[in-house]
């Protein structure tokens, strides 16, 4: 006989109430804990900023911030963010008052098809939180795992540089 310790996945595919903190609001939803976070954000909470790209965590179009860190929402089970603060593109700014990073992307006209921009903006936001004054090489390094098929990389890098400048101005303005 073999005595085998088995690995039952706990029953994570049946819905149960989970409380999520998204863009500073609490939502309690009955969902299967294994569901990718992206599905919940787009289908249940109508946050359509994060995009469904490859669905494999490879292109970065679905990027959201979890506790300020970028995360790929298409492969992150929703149970993993219970107790953590999720920020989507909608949580950055509004049409009337865009976040400095969003404003910079508008100013630099950094979009062609625009599908990757959610990931670019969210990753740039995380980068600037950690490094308020990145040089071009650091920007390219931070964005290397976010794919863009239109080839607007040059504009995107310029937008992040501009965002850094805007953010410093805002910070300087609020401090004085």
């Amino acid at each position: 006989m073999r005595d085998v310790q088995t690995a039952p996945s706990p029953p994570m595919n049946t819905p149960r109430p989970l409380t999520l903190q998204v863009n500073h609001a609490e939502h309690t939803l009955s969902v299967a804990p294994d569901t990718p976070l992206l599905y919940i954000l787009r289908n249940d909470l109508c946050c359509n900023g994060p995009k469904y790209g490859c669905g494999l965590g490879q292109c970065g179009a679905c990027t959201v911030l979890v506790d300020g860190m970028p995360a790929r929402a298409c492969v992150l089970p929703v149970r993993a963010v219970v107790g953590h603060a999720v920020t989507t593109l909608e949580g950055l700014g509004t049409d009337a008052q865009p976040d400095p990073v969003q404003q910079a992307f508008i100013d630099e006209q950094a979009a062609q098809c625009g599908y990757c921009l959610n990931g670019m903006i969210m990753t740039a936001k995380a980068l600037l939180a950690q490094n308020p004054d990145p040089d071009e090489a650091q920007i390219r390094e931070a964005l290397r795992f976010n794919l863009c098929r239109c080839g607007t990389h040059v504009e995107i890098v310029r937008a992040v540089q501009r965002a850094a400048m805007l953010q410093r101005q805002t910070a300087g303005g609020s401090a004085s």
């Binding site: 965590g57 790929r72 390094e141 795992f145």
Partner: peptide, 18 residues
């Protein structure tokens, strides 16, 4: 590079959640 590096290459890209 496409499937693993983003989460396993600590010297590349930006720090991720987790």
């Amino acid at each position: 590079q496409s499937a693993c590096a983003v989460c396993h290459q600590s010297d590349q890209g930006i720090a991720q959640f987790g």
